[in-house]
């Protein structure tokens, strides 16, 4: 709004993202069938991160925002990741 430009993402682009998201969801479901121990949690998390990033960048237009917003959003997710990793140190070493 500040810079007065309107970004219109094409239907095509939205469609591609949608397909990608569905594909990633399929991976999440598949991984529950493979018994890979604590590894499967890691993969599920990774997939979830990729999905969240896609939604943020395309559906929530972060891609077109100023750098400062990208940096802040990135920091938030970095923090969340660190908190997850630190918590899992307890479970992996218990």
């Amino acid at each position: 709004m500040q810079h007065g430009e309107v970004h219109i993402t094409s239907y095509r682009a939205h469609g591609v993202i949608l397909v990608l998201l569905l594909f990633l969801t399929a991976i999440t479901i598949t991984i529950t069938w493979v018994d890979a121990g604590s590894f499967s949690v890691g993969v599920a998390m990774l997939v979830a991160c990729v999905k969240a990033t896609l939604v943020l960048f395309y559906f929530m237009h972060l891609k077109f925002d100023a750098l400062v917003f990208k940096v802040f959003a990135g920091m938030v997710f970095f923090l969340l990741a660190v908190v997850f990793v630190v918590t899992f140190f307890d479970y992996l070493f218990r």
Binding site: L79, V82, V83, V86, F89, D90, R94
Partner: peptide
């Protein structure tokens, strides 16, 4: 300050590694 929460849980049965960290 985000990364020190475990000091409330030293006697709760958390892993040794986490306790030291």
């Amino acid at each position: 300050g985000y990364l020190v929460w475990g000091h409330h849980m030293f006697t709760s049965g958390m892993s040794d590694f986490s306790r030291m960290a």
